[in-house]
């Protein structure tokens, strides 16, 4: 048996070219899902293979990579993906949002505003925003072609009729550049406004479903809503217990089995950066090493 040999950033060059061409098409047609021949990656489908393929196709030796899952650099899958690129591409990694040139994320957009030199790569499980209304690809493709998004509005309005609110709290559909309705990946709707007119390039990779899509910088991204029921962000009404932030998305930490709980920033870098500059919440965080970077 010959020992396997792997290329820079794992993917072979032919695969990278195929993904790169798909990325260019995705940027040229904001919000449109470009089919691509997703490869089998050495990690399971559903665990970020789409994001990993996009990152592998764009990453170069001068990049600095940050990987987050649920807003945190220290969740196991984020660690695993960061290590994968440190190993296969030898790139430097960071937990600092400001220092990263490429950020791969699952389920969150960092709190700190992104800048022009950055690319945000989203891991996407189900790229088709209409999939839960219509399971057939042949149908949803036709609906996108005709901009026929009535079904989505009907669904959202049925929520209002039943619950008094739009009952979608994450993966909240958006319209990109006034044309394509797009799934922002399962980020909480709190993050939706950050996608609008963002200075950074946003790329979305869905490996199992074989789709790549994009939002170029400075592109209009509107969350779907109704005049009498405008889109509203949701955030638990409390400051972060560690850094006191009152503008960040919070994780609910269950502290005992008698109803005790506290709320802390989901974006760990944002929280740590604030604490480092002297911000304090009601609880004091334990001192710990700031950087978990490898390579």
């Amino acid at each position: 048996m010959t020992a396997p040999v792997y290329n820079f950033a794992y993917l072979d060059e032919q695969t990278k070219r195929m993904i790169r061409r798909a990325i260019l098409k995705a940027i040229a047609i904001p919000g449109y899902q470009v089919p691509f021949a997703s490869r089998e990656m050495p990690m399971p489908y559903g665990w970020g293979t789409g994001g990993v393929q996009v990152t592998a196709a764009i990453l170069g030796p001068t990049d600095t990579l940050k990987v987050i899952d649920q807003g945190s650099d220290d969740t196991t899958n984020a660690i695993s993906i960061r290590k994968f690129f440190a190993k296969t591409a030898g790139v430097s990694t960071t937990t600092s949002t400001a220092d990263a040139t490429v950020i791969q994320t699952r389920h969150r957009i960092p709190e700190a505003a992104l800048s022009e030199g950055q690319v945000l790569v989203y891991q996407v499980p189900i790229p088709e925003p209409l999939r839960f209304l219509e399971p057939r690809e042949t149908e949803t493709r036709r609906m996108h072609a005709l901009s026929e998004y009535g079904l989505m509005h009907v669904k959202l309005y049925e929520d209002i009729a039943r619950f008094g609110h739009i009952a979608t709290s994450y993966a909240y559909p958006v319209k990109v550049n006034g044309r394509y309705v797009m799934d922002p990946s399962p980020t909480p709707k709190f993050d939706n406004p950050k996608m609008d007119n963002c200075a950074a390039l946003q790329l979305f990779g869905a490996g199992r479903e074989k789709r790549i899509y994009a939002i170029p910088p400075y592109t209009t991204v509107v969350s779907l809503d109704f005049e009498d029921h405008p889109f509203a962000r949701y955030r638990h009404e409390a400051p972060c217990a560690l850094c006191g932030a009152d503008d960040s998305y919070l994780d609910e930490i269950v502290t005992d089995d008698r109803g005790g709980r506290m709320f802390v920033c989901s974006d760990t870098d944002y929280c740590e950066t604030r604490q480092a500059s002297g911000h304090r919440g009601s609880e004091r965080a334990a001192p710990h090493k700031k950087d978990h970077a490898h390579g």
Partner: peptide, 8 residues
């Protein structure tokens, strides 16, 4: 982990 969506 899905706790961010779950929180929402």
């Amino acid at each position: 982990p899905h706790y961010v969506d779950f929180q929402s």
